[in-house]
Protein backbone atom coordinates (compact mmCIF):
# COMPACT_ATOMS: atom_id res chain seq x y z
CA UNK A 1 0.00 0.00 0.00
CA UNK A 2 1.36 3.38 -0.93
CA UNK A 3 1.00 5.80 1.93
CA UNK A 4 -0.74 9.00 0.94
CA UNK A 5 0.26 12.26 2.53
CA UNK A 6 -2.78 13.73 4.20
CA UNK A 7 -2.71 17.53 4.23
CA UNK A 8 -2.07 18.93 7.68
CA UNK A 9 -3.49 22.26 8.82
CA UNK A 10 -1.18 24.25 10.97
CA UNK A 11 -0.72 27.66 12.47
CA UNK A 12 2.64 29.25 13.07
CA UNK A 13 4.23 32.67 13.33
CA UNK A 14 6.35 33.75 10.38
CA UNK A 15 8.12 37.07 10.78
CA UNK A 16 5.57 37.98 13.45
CA UNK A 17 2.63 37.29 11.15
CA UNK A 18 0.21 34.61 12.24
CA UNK A 19 0.07 32.23 9.30
CA UNK A 20 -2.44 29.44 8.71
CA UNK A 21 -1.44 26.89 6.13
CA UNK A 22 -2.41 23.48 4.90
CA UNK A 23 0.50 21.37 3.68
CA UNK A 24 1.07 17.74 2.75
CA UNK A 25 2.80 15.84 5.55
CA UNK A 26 5.95 15.30 3.50
CA UNK A 27 6.54 19.00 2.80
CA UNK A 28 9.48 20.65 4.48
CA UNK A 29 9.32 24.05 6.11
CA UNK A 30 11.51 25.28 3.25
CA UNK A 31 8.92 24.15 0.72
CA UNK A 32 6.13 25.83 2.70
CA UNK A 33 8.08 29.09 2.81
CA UNK A 34 9.14 29.16 -0.82
CA UNK A 35 6.36 27.44 -2.73
CA UNK A 36 3.26 28.13 -0.65
CA UNK A 37 4.03 31.50 0.93
CA UNK A 38 6.32 32.93 -1.76
CA UNK A 39 9.06 33.76 0.76
CA UNK A 40 11.91 32.96 -1.60
CA UNK A 41 14.55 34.81 0.44
CA UNK A 42 15.24 31.47 2.13
CA UNK A 43 17.46 29.62 -0.30
CA UNK A 44 17.24 26.02 -1.39
CA UNK A 45 20.82 24.82 -1.79
CA UNK A 46 21.65 21.18 -1.22
CA UNK A 47 18.21 20.37 0.25
CA UNK A 48 19.83 17.76 2.51
CA UNK A 49 21.42 19.56 5.41
CA UNK A 50 24.91 20.15 4.03
CA UNK A 51 25.09 23.84 3.23
CA UNK A 52 23.10 26.12 5.55
CA UNK A 53 21.55 28.18 2.73
CA UNK A 54 18.07 27.35 4.01
CA UNK A 55 18.81 28.53 7.57
CA UNK A 56 15.90 30.23 9.34
CA UNK A 57 15.51 31.17 12.99
CA UNK A 58 13.07 29.01 14.90
CA UNK A 59 12.31 30.39 18.33
CA UNK A 60 15.45 32.45 17.82
CA UNK A 61 17.79 29.56 16.97
CA UNK A 62 19.31 28.94 13.51
CA UNK A 63 17.92 25.73 12.04
CA UNK A 64 17.80 24.11 8.60
CA UNK A 65 14.38 24.47 7.01
CA UNK A 66 15.16 21.78 4.41
CA UNK A 67 15.28 19.15 7.16
CA UNK A 68 12.24 20.25 9.17
CA UNK A 69 8.79 19.04 8.26
CA UNK A 70 6.49 22.02 7.84
CA UNK A 71 4.01 20.29 10.13
CA UNK A 72 6.62 20.17 12.88
CA UNK A 73 6.94 23.97 12.79
CA UNK A 74 3.41 24.21 14.14
CA UNK A 75 3.15 26.83 16.87
CA UNK A 76 6.76 27.91 16.36
CA UNK A 77 8.10 31.41 15.81
CA UNK A 78 9.91 31.38 12.48
CA UNK A 79 12.04 34.26 11.28
CA UNK A 80 13.24 34.41 7.70
CA UNK A 81 15.47 36.92 5.97
CA UNK A 82 12.36 38.86 4.92
CA UNK A 83 11.65 39.51 8.59
CA UNK A 84 15.05 40.91 9.53
CA UNK A 85 14.53 44.54 8.59
CA UNK A 86 10.90 44.70 9.83
CA UNK A 87 12.03 43.28 13.20
CA UNK A 88 14.79 45.89 13.39
CA UNK A 89 12.33 48.71 12.61
CA UNK A 90 9.81 47.34 15.08
CA UNK A 91 12.49 47.49 17.77
CA UNK A 92 12.91 51.19 17.03
CA UNK A 93 15.76 50.98 14.54
CA UNK A 94 16.07 52.81 11.27
CA UNK A 95 17.26 51.52 7.91
CA UNK A 96 18.40 47.96 7.51
CA UNK A 97 19.23 45.56 10.30
CA UNK A 98 22.88 46.43 11.20
CA UNK A 99 23.97 42.96 10.09
CA UNK A 100 22.41 43.47 6.65
CA UNK A 101 23.86 46.95 6.41
CA UNK A 102 27.35 45.73 7.32
CA UNK A 103 27.19 42.81 4.87
CA UNK A 104 26.23 45.29 2.18
CA UNK A 105 28.98 47.76 2.97
CA UNK A 106 31.69 45.13 3.41
CA UNK A 107 30.81 43.42 0.15
CA UNK A 108 30.39 40.24 2.17
CA UNK A 109 28.94 38.40 -0.78
CA UNK A 110 29.46 37.53 -4.37
CA UNK A 111 26.65 35.38 -5.75
CA UNK A 112 24.66 35.97 -2.57
CA UNK A 113 23.24 32.48 -2.30
CA UNK A 114 24.59 31.90 1.20
CA UNK A 115 23.75 35.37 2.42
CA UNK A 116 20.29 34.96 3.92
CA UNK A 117 21.44 32.03 6.00
CA UNK A 118 24.70 33.74 6.97
CA UNK A 119 22.94 36.89 8.12
CA UNK A 120 20.37 34.97 10.13
CA UNK A 121 23.09 32.93 11.87
CA UNK A 122 24.93 36.19 12.59
CA UNK A 123 21.76 37.89 13.86
CA UNK A 124 21.01 34.96 16.20
CA UNK A 125 24.55 35.14 17.56
CA UNK A 126 24.37 38.89 18.22
CA UNK A 127 20.97 38.55 19.90
CA UNK A 128 22.53 36.14 22.38
CA UNK A 129 25.93 37.74 22.69
CA UNK A 130 26.27 41.34 21.45
CA UNK A 131 30.09 41.26 21.62
CA UNK A 132 31.37 37.89 20.42
CA UNK A 133 35.04 37.57 19.53
CA UNK A 134 36.29 36.36 16.16
CA UNK A 135 36.42 32.70 17.21
CA UNK A 136 32.83 32.86 18.42
CA UNK A 137 31.74 34.51 15.17
CA UNK A 138 33.47 31.86 13.10
CA UNK A 139 31.91 29.10 15.18
CA UNK A 140 28.44 30.60 14.89
CA UNK A 141 28.77 30.83 11.12
CA UNK A 142 30.44 27.44 10.71
CA UNK A 143 27.24 25.74 9.56
CA UNK A 144 26.85 28.14 6.64
CA UNK A 145 28.94 27.40 3.58
CA UNK A 146 29.97 30.11 1.15
CA UNK A 147 31.32 29.00 -2.22
CA UNK A 148 32.47 32.47 -3.25
CA UNK A 149 33.84 34.90 -0.72
CA UNK A 150 36.44 33.01 1.25
CA UNK A 151 34.61 34.20 4.41
CA UNK A 152 36.98 37.06 5.24
CA UNK A 153 34.55 39.86 4.42
CA UNK A 154 31.72 37.96 6.06
CA UNK A 155 33.53 37.86 9.39
CA UNK A 156 34.55 41.49 8.94
CA UNK A 157 30.93 42.46 8.31
CA UNK A 158 29.84 40.89 11.57
CA UNK A 159 32.72 42.63 13.35
CA UNK A 160 31.71 45.94 11.79
CA UNK A 161 28.12 45.51 12.97
CA UNK A 162 29.39 44.74 16.47
CA UNK A 163 31.81 47.67 16.53
CA UNK A 164 29.16 50.13 15.40
CA UNK A 165 26.62 48.87 17.89
CA UNK A 166 29.06 49.28 20.77
CA UNK A 167 30.44 52.60 19.53
CA UNK A 168 33.92 51.08 19.24
CA UNK A 169 36.15 51.94 16.33
CA UNK A 170 35.81 49.18 13.75
CA UNK A 171 39.04 47.44 12.93
CA UNK A 172 40.53 48.34 9.59
CA UNK A 173 39.86 45.50 7.15
CA UNK A 174 42.89 43.60 5.91
CA UNK A 175 42.27 44.60 2.30
CA UNK A 176 42.41 48.35 2.98
CA UNK A 177 45.36 50.62 3.73
CA UNK A 178 43.05 53.32 5.06
CA UNK A 179 40.09 52.66 7.33
CA UNK A 180 36.99 52.88 5.17
CA UNK A 181 34.70 52.52 8.20
CA UNK A 182 36.05 55.48 10.14
CA UNK A 183 33.32 58.05 10.98
CA UNK A 184 31.28 57.20 7.94
CA UNK A 185 28.23 55.06 7.44
CA UNK A 186 28.68 54.21 3.82
CA UNK A 187 31.54 53.18 1.64
CA UNK A 188 33.42 55.98 0.06
CA UNK A 189 36.87 56.63 -1.37
CA UNK A 190 39.05 54.25 -3.25
CA UNK A 191 37.75 51.05 -1.68
CA UNK A 192 34.13 51.82 -2.14
CA UNK A 193 31.76 53.08 -4.71
CA UNK A 194 29.60 50.85 -6.77
CA UNK A 195 32.28 48.36 -7.70
Amino acid sequence: MLAMSTPISLELSINDDRVRASVPAHWTLLELLRYELGLTGTKQGCDKGDCGACTVLIDGKPQLSCLILAANAEGKKVQTIEGLQPAHRKAGGVGLDPVQDAFDRCGALQCGFCQSGMMLSARALLNENPTPDRTEIRQALSGNLCRCTGYTQIVQAVELAIAESTGAEPESPSWSDGNPWKSTTSLSGKNGGDA
Binding site: A3, M4, N72
Partner: peptide
Protein backbone atom coordinates in the same frame (compact mmCIF):
# COMPACT_ATOMS: atom_id res chain seq x y z
CA UNK B 1 15.53 19.95 -5.20
CA UNK B 2 15.36 16.76 -3.23
CA UNK B 3 11.74 16.03 -2.38
CA UNK B 4 10.54 13.73 0.33
CA UNK B 5 8.45 10.77 -0.73
CA UNK B 6 4.92 10.77 0.65
CA UNK B 7 4.10 9.35 4.08
CA UNK B 8 1.61 9.71 6.87
CA UNK B 9 2.83 11.84 9.76
CA UNK B 10 1.86 11.05 13.33
CA UNK B 11 2.55 13.33 16.28
Amino acid sequence: MLRLPQFTLER
